[in-house]
């Protein structure tokens, strides 16, 4: 039974002529226990997808089932409760509250659950032990190294026993050593049966994943299963066979990965000029329903 099930999910931003399509009829099904890496160039809709799955946002069209419950049109408070109980977030910039100690940060989700202070601090402390930074309990986030801060953030994501962990570029702000540490930790968590969804730009990190999803222009263009421990085939192609990004590609926001993949619609690409986020201005006010034809 799929934990996450997206059916024709679209997300539109803005009104009238300024409408942009961030997600274009995405269909995605993720089973319990999968470790999914999401890759794609900036502005391809990865973050929008993460926000939708994490219930921070609602799809404009389509249905989204999380844990067999239809959650596509929840009210903010209901969404908050599901977020609290079933989703754990890990961010690129850690997002720990700077004025709270590590322990208090980790116990914060439990505060919103209404757990008593003693119980939640005990719980948080256990969780910090699990990620290996229990000795830093009473430190402030600013006193931690990047790797430790991300470990604390992971502990916070885990403290509620979520069914799903969403990590948006968890290693984006870390050096390679800390990255490895954080990824090993996520890998351990995965081995214990958790479902993890993470966004990355680094093809190397697909090594840890069981499945890699490539996105482009708001749609999923490639989806492959991969063995743990080896870089995904498509990603490896990017990594080893392609030259690094050229300057003009950089300006146009075209990544190496994009070039390596078969384009969705080549004719559209030709007309594109050097703007930083081409897809944002591309198709204005197009209803996703019309596109089906």
């Amino acid at each position: 039974m799929a934990l996450i099930e997206l059916q024709d999910v679209s997300k539109l931003y803005g009104f009238g002529d300024a409408t942009t399509l961030a997600l274009d009829e995405v269909n995605l099904s993720i089973d319990k226990g999968e470790f999914v890496a999401v890759m794609g160039p900036s502005g391809c809709g990865k973050s929008t997808l993460m926000n939708l799955i994490g219930l921070l946002d609602r799809p404009s069209h389509g249905t989204f089932r999380l844990d067999n419950k239809k959650v596509s049109q929840l009210r903010p408070n209901q969404a908050a409760k599901i977020r609290r109980d079933t989703v754990g977030f890990i961010f690129q910039s850690f997002n720990l509250l700077p004025r709270l100690t590590v322990l208090e940060n980790v116990s914060l989700p439990l505060v919103y659950k209404g757990m008593s202070e003693r119980k939640r601090l005990k719980h948080a402390s256990e969780m910090l032990d699990r990620v290996g930074i229990q000795s830093r309990e009473y430190f402030l986030p600013s006193q931690l190294s990047g790797g430790q801060a991300q470990c604390a953030a992971i502990a916070r994501a885990l403290v509620n026993g979520p069914k799903l962990i969403i990590a948006d570029e968890p290693t984006g702000n870390l050096d390679s050593e800390s990255s490895r540490l954080v990824m090993e930790l996520l890998s351990d968590i995965h081995k214990m049966g958790n479902t993890i969804l993470f966004v990355t730009h680094n093809p190397e990190l697909t090594r840890y994943a069981t499945r890699v999803v490539y996105m482009h222009d708001g749609t999923i263009i490639h989806d492959e299963q991969t063995a743990i421990g080896s870089v995904a085939t498509t990603a490896r192609k990017v990594l080893y066979t392609l030259p690094t990004t050229k300057e003009e590609d950089d300006l146009a926001g075209v990544s190496t990965l994009m070039k390596a993949l078969p384009s969705k619609n080549t004719s559209r690409k030709k007309g594109r000029t050097a703007v930083s986020k081409p897809k944002k201005n591309k198709r204005t006010a197009v209803s996703p329903r019309k596109k089906k034809s």
Binding site: G54, L56, P76, N77, A80, K81, R83, R84, D85, F89, N95, L96, L97, L108, P109, Y112, K113, R156, A157, N160
Partner: peptide, 16 residues
Amino acid sequence: THEIGIRKAIGATDRQ
């Protein structure tokens, strides 16, 4: 604002 965003992301309701 950022703090509010974090709190909401980890499950704080509007009322909280």
